[in-house]
Design a protein around this nucleic acid. Sequence first.
DNA 1: AACTCGGGGCA
DNA 2: TGCCCAGAGTT
Length: 222
Amino acid sequence: MLSKKQVLFVLDEIEKMFPDAHCELRHSNPFELMIAVLLSAQCTDALVNKVTEKLFKKYKTPEDYLSVPLEELEQDIRSIGLYRNKAKNIQKLSYMLIHEYGGVIPKNRDELIKFPGVGRKTANVIVSVAFDVPAIAVDTHVERVSKRLGICRWKDSVLQVEETLMKKIPKERWSKAHHQLIFFGRYHCKAQSPQCEICPLLEICREGQKRMRRRGVVDAKK
DNA sequence: AACTCGGGGCA
DNA sequence: TGCCCAGAGTT
């Protein structure tokens, strides 16, 4: 596994590639962010942004989401997959927010996870982006990149990946590191086509070197 | 750990 | 056409 120093090298190299890594979900307050992150599950955020552009004009408050029939909210987010679950969760979440939290979104993970549709990953994004609380949300990109590079072990669970990242990265860099790993995973070290040939991290990347060796064998056969 | 929800985007 | 996408809840 990579040492702390090597992990910081990774982050510094990604900083050169993506100096403006940030949350790309459209939102102008914590409540909108909460809705947007919930909608983004198993879906590209470009699509989420397209939907929320209209959605946030129609619905401003938790009360707004409860003022329409479930079927109407479903139609408003229909172009996003899993829309029946998500519409139901948004209304339930809105009800809880009003009746149990006085309309104020809690700032700690343990409270946020109690909301339907909000898991550990979503909660981490909310606290880190909306409230500037240090956190590392492990999604598919962060997990894949961490395992390929050798920051953690291949068979690590999501929770183990998160713990390892927190251990190897200084707390003040957690939130930024999260977005850096996201950008690196989404735009460079893609699930289907990692661009190892032009990757500045190849020299310390376990999976990248393995891939290049495999490719060398293939090329030699030609 | 495996399964389900799911329309849109892309090869 | 087939496969995947800033996951979470249930079994």
